[in-house]
Design a binder for these strands. Structure first.
Lengths: 134, 134
DNA sequence: GACGTTATCGCAAGTTGTCGCAATAGTCGA
DNA sequence: TCGACTATTGCGACAACTTGCGATAACGTC
């Protein structure tokens, strides 16, 4: 992987490695802040901005992706984990994962009708969950 | 409308009226910051936080809604304008509106399978547009 | 290995939005 | 119209990023 990064004219730094390690260890939908905190616990000299910039760089390089669950925070994860959709309840905040297969018909339709290649795992679908709807 | 607001135990203030007026005048998907700026041009004593709080209050009251187009900024509009979906290209940033009808089959399916009442107009669908896909 | 190039870093300052709080001012009932 | 109640405001502080910049340190080349 380090070689792959170098072959793209980027560099493998201690900081970048630490961000990858932290992502490896973290729970699935983690935040940049959480990663920064976990790294700074051991390496306080590493600036949060470095973590933010590395997540972005690793995303460009294809090792990392982000999704949006609730409205504000960006969630990060390794690119090699299985993709899935998200349902988030606007009332109680509960989160639910759904297989991409469920979203596939819409993706197909958008591709056919609009030529648009949708990434339906990128943003959660907001709505009201079964319990709150009652 | 003022009466309706009062009947819900809320109040009609100068600031709230100004936010509504600004929304009326603004282009469709405007931002809180833009509204704050337009109000403060004439009324510099009105704090931005007041604008943010009023948008939230007016949303609770049902006069205003927000959507998320790109990743960061919240876009606001009056609740009485027609709902529609959004396609946003991750490469070129272009935005496209699509009729809710296109998204309805997915909404139906989520309701049937998961009991989840999806609001598919709330977040834009991110992907790659026809031009950028070539 | 040494060297030059330049991606990346740490830091400080800037943005954008949120929150707690004391002061203010709509609203309602008398 | 007056007074009490309390929603709302402005302000200052804070939180969560983002950005510009000079210094540092990976990397390719020799």
């Amino acid at each position: 992987m380090a070689d792959d990064i170098r072959s793209k004219g980027r560099r493998m730094t201690v900081q970048r490695r630490l961000v990858l390690d932290a992502l490896q260890r973290a729970r699935h939908h983690t935040t940049a802040e959480e990663i920064a905190r976990s790294i700074r616990a051991r390496h306080p000299q590493i600036d949060p901005s470095t973590v933010y910039r590395n997540l972005e760089a690793l995303e460009e390089l294809g090792y990392v992706t982000h999704t949006h669950l609730d409205d504000r925070v960006t969630r990060w994860h390794r690119a090699d984990v299985a993709q899935h959709g998200h349902l988030v309840c606007r009332r109680c905040g509960s989160e639910q994962e759904i297989p991409l297969r469920t979203l596939e018909p819409l993706a197909r339709r958008l591709r056919a009708d609009e030529g648009f290649h949708a990434d339906l795992a990128h943003s959660a679908i907001v709505g009201v969950c079964r319990e709150c709807a009652r």
